[in-house]
């Protein structure tokens, strides 16, 4: 998921940075004092998630957790993912500082979409629905991120269909895994700490 430096052309980098800047501004505006600890915890989770690899043939892919961040944080997923990626770039040399904007948008954009599609279900009293929506959020976020990544690579001369095929296939196991993780995480949080999800009604 992390595009290295020197792969993309400047216009793509600038466009990604601009979209990310807008998203981060929106996220910071929507963040209030009560949600900051929640954002911090999920940023930490995102930061560490990339270290969990999913072995796959000759290569390996890693967890992203952008679906989880999207469904729980909403617009605050933008600043969260930006901070997580910046630290990954600085400390692990994953991705790079020039590709920070593009990489953030690739992961945070689908997260926001998942928030609008599935976020409302968190207040549902029907646990089955919550689980289904959580799974979809984890699954869809990775799928869309792979497609966005393929889209960015068009400008480097790769054919979209081919890049998309490779990326989606490579991330297929991650999609299922993330779907399961988001579903389990939400079920767990709903039970022990519903206030972390911003849900005020008592669990059960």
């Amino acid at each position: 998921m992390h595009i290295s430096e020197g792969v993309l052309s400047p216009p793509v980098l600038v466009a990604g940075a601009a979209l990310t800047a807008a998203g981060v501004a929106m996220g910071l505006k929507k963040m209030d004092n009560e949600s900051i600890p929640r954002v911090a915890v999920l940023t930490a989770a995102f930061f560490v998630a990339s270290l969990i690899r999913v072995p796959l043939g000759p290569s390996a892919v890693h967890l992203v957790l952008n679906g989880l961040l999207g469904i729980v944080l909403g617009w605050a997923a933008f600043p969260a993912i930006l901070v997580g990626l910046a630290l990954q770039a600085l400390l692990f040399q994953f991705g790079g500082l020039t590709t920070l904007g593009v990489n953030t948008f690739i992961m945070a954009g689908p997260a926001i979409l998942c928030y609008y599609l599935f976020g409302r279900s968190l207040t549902s009293k029907h646990p089955g629905l919550v689980t289904a929506m959580a799974f979809s959020s984890g699954f869809l976020a990775i799928l869309l991120s792979s497609l966005l990544l393929a889209l960015c690579l068009i400008f480097t001369g790769e054919s979209f269909l081919q890049a998309a095929k490779v990326l989606v296939l490579a991330h297929l196991p991650v999609m299922f895994l993330e779907g399961l993780i988001v579903a389990f995480c939400l079920a767990f949080l709903m039970k022990v700490k519903p206030e972390l999800l911003g849900v005020t009604h008592a669990a059960g």
Binding site: V48, S59, A60
Partner: peptide, 15 residues
């Protein structure tokens, strides 16, 4: 698993 597998692993986000 996360904590156990931190050492000597393969990550596909950097070459």
């Amino acid at each position: 698993i996360t904590f156990l597998s931190l050492a000597s692993q393969v990550w596909a986000h950097k070459v």
